[in-house]
Amino acid sequence: MMSDFLQFAVSGVTVGAVYALIALGFTLIYNASDVVNFAQGEFVMLGGMGTVFALQAGLPLPLAALIAVMGTAMIGIAFNKLAIERARNAPIVSLIIITIGASIFLQGVVQVVFGKGIHRLPAFSGDEPLRLLGATITPQSLWVIGGALVVFAALYLFFTRTITGLAVLATANNRFAARLAGIDTDFMMTLSFGVSAAIGALAGVLISPITLTSYQVGVPLALKGFAAAMLGGMGNPKGALVGGVLLGVLEAMTAGYLSSHYKDAVAFIVILVLLSVKPQGLFGLRTVNRV
């Protein structure tokens, strides 16, 4: 009984850590530019696929992962420069279509360059599971959870201890006022896209040994990460962490105790119910509409 519960909790937290990273990526871009980036899942896909192919080219795993993450960050920056910056002040529907267009475009490119095959990465430190109070946990799960914790901690320090981090926060708060204070808000946006893409790619590298990867894995992950971000409240990194882990655990519990078919429905049922009751998410602020 107890060991079942623990087992579900462990797998839930593992998946939840990935959702949290994707939600964090959404949040960073949303804060900097008010854009919800539907191509966020493609960053995850690019991280996984990039590592697979760098590895096949004969590079060692850490270097392959580093190249994939940096490459994805460059793609995120290019996306901001070439598309998002040029569509300033466009209506929300147009921005949604631009980011979905980017998502379809990136999938198309990966499909042409790397093919349609499904790939797997080797686990970072073996497949020997560890035992914990009757539940088993793979070393890769620990890598995923640990990786997410490091990213969140690093970002927390960045936002509270560095001038650049504070400038990003100021831009998120009020772009106009930030510009008046001498902050280069365009650079903050570029930075946010780069960091967000890198975080997404890292999530892809960490999870690929568990879930496999192909050019198609991005969209479902993006939708889950999106749901997690909304669950916590858009634009709040703490909300991304709580929303992601909560969603992962709820999914694992649903799959374990109720129905594995409807595991993927949890995210959207929770979103529909929560947004009906509390439209700003768990940690979101109420906004007032000024005329």
């Binding site: 598309a83 569509a87 631009i98 267009g101 475009f105 198309g108 499909q111």
Partner: peptide
């Protein structure tokens, strides 16, 4: 054939950026 998705994604982005 295989360039279909690339073309579709590009068209979506370009139209929305230049013909809002």
């Amino acid at each position: 054939d295989q360039y279909e998705q690339i073309a579709l994604g590009l068209i979506m982005m370009l139209v929305m950026i230049y013909l809002r």
